[in-house]
Amino acid sequence: MKPDKKFINTILPITDKMFRLAASITGNKQDAEDVVQDTMLKVWQKREEWNAIVNFEGYCLRSVRNIALDKISLKDNQLESIPDFFDPPMESQTDPLEIEEQLEAIEKILSNLPEKQRTVFQLRDVEGLSYKEIEQIMNISEEQVKVNLFRVRQKIKKLLKS
């Protein structure tokens, strides 16, 4: 199969996933598109190595993450992580929040998380990847994947229970 056809057939089904991951790391659509474009170029330029790649989706998502991290470090992104012990203040502990308000509150928590926690949440809870796949994409151990995911889920649980 010609490289360009293979490229299209393989990468097209995962472009949305790539975009979502890039957006979760960079925090905005424009940067996410730039990251996806750069990733496609990088993957295309390394087409000689495609035959050696076992998990192409993982390879692409890993590239997305690396390029997105470079982008946010270049921009000196101000999405600094809030220390784990920080709890976002609630207006009232007794009044239940409407679903939309809850969704907004969760999104706000997510946007303030360290990149590793945001990415683990995105790959597991949004994209439904296994711990093994996440391990390979993020180049961290399965244990670290679980630790980061645990911290995210506990924050969300605490928010919703309050």
């Binding site: 949305d16 790539m18 996410a32 679903i99 809850q102 969704l103 969760i106 999104e107 969300i156």
Partner: peptide, 14 residues
């Protein structure tokens, strides 16, 4: 809300 958000995020497309 936790699962609703996951579903909403998963439906975003480029």
């Amino acid at each position: 809300a936790a699962f609703l958000l996951q579903d909403r995020l998963a439906k975003e497309k480029a």
